[in-house]
């Protein structure tokens, strides 16, 4: 039996909403994922952590079908994401919301219009209903009063909250967060953390949070994957992961400057470089 599945909490209904199997992906000759298996259980917040450059964002783009894996596959609710034509892929994407690191709000539209955008594009709802829906979504993220502002007038944290309201507009089943806490002050970090948790629980969503803010993410997630060097190096519920014995994972979780990920970029020895060793 697959060890990944046995490690999952066993109280959720049905198989995982998103299943990653044998994923291989790389740019050019650089391999980002080398045989990765992951499950994202329904109704849960699953965190993906790892050092910068380990492909955390890449994984979200693969799940969103923006990029194709070289081998292996990803299924969403049992449907293979990468075996869809454009119409099929777009149908799947309407059931996903994604929060980009900087919000990715459309800069020529107001906050209100940004949240209304997916509704206008994908539904035939009358204007009055769109207005009500948008205001409710904005209320949920505490920005109903900011509806007439433009993206350039928002702080980073506010932009992410608007993006969250927009991601929720079509009532998705899955929300993916790309580094939602990076560069936030403590207050807006707290706000965003609470939002990720409450939105997930109130709407019965499945959430994937990609981050390297160890303490924050551990505190809100139900299950954690630590990836590094193209592999999953630790996984489990936050408490299990905190006890991990993997050296690589320990270095990352404890923030040690030196370890399996060396402080020094690979180079010849210093003595050689300075010409101190006789040739």
């Amino acid at each position: 039996m697959n060890p990944v599945v046995t490690a999952m909490p066993n109280d959720q209904p049905g198989p995982a909403l998103v299943q990653v199997r044998g994923l291989r992906f790389g740019y050019g000759r650089k391999l980002i994922f080398d045989g990765v298996d992951m499950d994202f259980a329904r109704g849960r917040i699953t965190a993906i952590m790892g050092p910068s450059g380990t492909g955390k964002t890449t994984l979200l783009r693969l799940i969103g079908g923006q990029w194709r894996p070289q081998a292996g596959g990803i299924t969403f609710d049992g449907v293979d994401i990468h075996r869809q034509n454009r119409a099929g892929l777009y149908r799947l994407r309407k059931r996903m919301g994604m929060l980009f690191q900087n919000g990715a709000l459309l800069t020529d539209l107001s906050v209100f219009e940004n949240v209304a955008f997916p509704l206008r594009e994908h539904t035939q709802l009358p204007e009055s209903m769109i207005r009500d829906l948008v205001l409710l979504k904005l209320q949920a993220v505490g920005l109903r009063g900011a509806r007439d502002l433009f993206p350039e007038e928002l702080s980073g944290g506010m932009a992410r909250r608007v993006a969250l309201a927009r991601a929720m507009a079509l009532e998705p089943e899955l929300v993916m967060y790309d580094e939602p806490f990076t560069g936030q002050d403590p207050i807006s970090m707290g706000v965003l953390m609470r939002l990720v948790r409450t939105v997930n629980d109130a709407l019965g969503l499945t959430s994937i949070v990609v981050s390297h803010d160890v303490v924050e993410v551990m505190s809100i997630s139900d299950y954690v994957y630590v990836i590094s060097g193209g592999k999953v190096i630790a996984q489990g519920e936050p408490d299990q992961v905190r006890q991990t014995s993997s050296e690589r994972a320990r270095q990352f979780l404890d923030g040690r400057p030196d370890g399996p990920v060396a402080f020094h970029y690979p180079a010849q020895s210093l003595a050689e470089d300075l010409g101190l060793e006789a040739a």
Binding site: R61, G64, Q66, R86, Y90, R91, R93, K94, M96, G97, M98, F100, Q101, N102, A104, L105, L106, T107, F117, P118, E121, H122, A163, R166, L170
Partner: peptide, 17 residues
């Protein structure tokens, strides 16, 4: 700039071409 600020990817993820 829309590409650089992920606005185009954002649209794709909202199923808007």
């Amino acid at each position: 700039l829309m590409r650089a600020t992920d606005q185009l990817s954002g649209m794709e993820m909202m199923a808007v071409d």
